[in-house]
Design a protein around this nucleic acid. Structure first.
Lengths: 110, 110
DNA sequence: CATATTGTTCGTAATATTGCGAACAAATGT
DNA sequence: ACATTTGTTCGCAATATTACGAACAATATG
């Protein structure tokens, strides 16, 4: 059936899982790194960087936008994309908190 | 078609994306937290914690095992699960490195 | 030995993701 | 005005994910 049981979970976990989902494809990771390396808003030079068709890249950009990680502003024929630094910061904070939760004082292996 | 174009990407990005994929569901995040909180290897009390059927939980455990995040050792009728601390550490390191890549000195918004 | 208990495997259905070509709209260039 | 560039939207196909019930094997309990 695959009914969405996601709303049954803690909202913190939902949010974090949603963010990780956005990061769960190498194309999207590459896009994020590229945007950061340009240190500026840049358009579909992304398409040249990523080994995928324009349509697919656009789709990945849509995912990143949906997750709130990037901004898109049309500028003439082109479109400027950029990281949303506040969300990147949030992602980092949530991740660190989560990873700390995972670090026990003493690990008992099995 | 959805041909797997994943091998075209940088292997670092592939690896990290694979790890994030394992974290991209609240059930799996909850399982990881639970295992860490028990600070020990524990069996299917997990099923009681997570609002999903045994079969589905088992499937999620399989994903986590496939990603190398947990270990499973059968013990009588029960099965012991535990975090693999070295992979958790690796995940944290890779994440921090990635997040640092994303942090530019000056953000130019768009 | 009968029978729970516990966990896995298998099959199945619904939905989501991935990837692209075709068609389209808007702005740019000649 | 006409072609080109650029990005989006739509539709489609392949595959993956999510979720579970049924059936099963192995250990544990009466």
């Amino acid at each position: 059936m695959a009914e969405a049981k996601i709303q049954l979970f803690d909202s913190d976990l939902q949010e974090l899982a949603q963010l990780y989902k956005a990061l769960a494809h190498p194309a999207r990771l590459q896009i994020l790194k590229f945007l950061a390396s340009k240190n500026a808003c840049f358009s579909g030079d992304i398409t040249e960087e990523v080994p995928l068709g324009r349509t697919t890249v656009n789709q990945h950009l849509g995912e990143l936008k949906k997750a709130g990680l990037i901004n898109a502003t049309p500028n003439g024929t082109k479109t400027n994309y950029c990281l949303k630094p506040e969300i990147v910061t949030k992602l980092k904070e949530l991740s660190l908190k989560f990873f700390d939760d995972l670090r026990s004082e003493e690990y008992i292996n099995c």
